[in-house]
Amino acid sequence: MNKSFTYEVRVPSDYNTDQQYPVIFALHGMGSDEQDMLRLMEPLQSDFIIVAVRGPIVQGNGYAYFQIKSIGNPVRELFDNSVQGLQQLIKDLSAEYAIDPARRYIIGFSQGAIMAMTLSLVMGDSIKGIVAMSGYIPQFVKDEYPIEPGTALSVFISHGDQDHIFPLQLGEGNADYFREHISNVTYVPYPGGHHVTAQLYDQFQFWLRSDAELAAGHLKGLNA
Rank of each mutant, 00 (worst) to 15 (best):
D92V: 09
I71W: 14
A215W: 04
D80E: 12
V131R: 02
L44R: 08
L78G: 14
N2G: 04
Q205N: 13
P189S: 08
Q87E: 14
Y97F: 15
G150K: 01
Y177N: 08
H164G: 08
A26Q: 03
V131D: 02
F5E: 01
R103V: 05
R209G: 07
F5W: 02
D176L: 10
G60V: 08
D18A: 15
R39H: 13
S120F: 01
I106H: 09
I165W: 11
R209W: 05
I137G: 06
T118I: 02
Y145P: 07
G31R: 05
V131Q: 10
P138N: 04
L89Q: 11
Q88S: 15
T118F: 01
A95D: 14
A216N: 08
K91L: 12
Q87F: 00
I130W: 03
I157H: 10
V196D: 06
K128D: 13
A64K: 04
I106P: 14
Y63C: 11
S120R: 01
Q35G: 05
Y65W: 08
Y97L: 15
Q19E: 15
L78K: 11
I57G: 08
S134C: 03
E96M: 06
Q87L: 08
Q35P: 02
T17H: 15
P12Q: 02
A95Q: 14
Q87I: 03
M123G: 05
D80Q: 06
V131F: 01
S120T: 00
M115S: 07
P138E: 09
G217D: 11
Y63S: 13
S120W: 00
S158K: 01
Q84R: 13
L78E: 15
H195C: 12
Q67Y: 11
Y63T: 02
T17W: 08
Q205C: 12
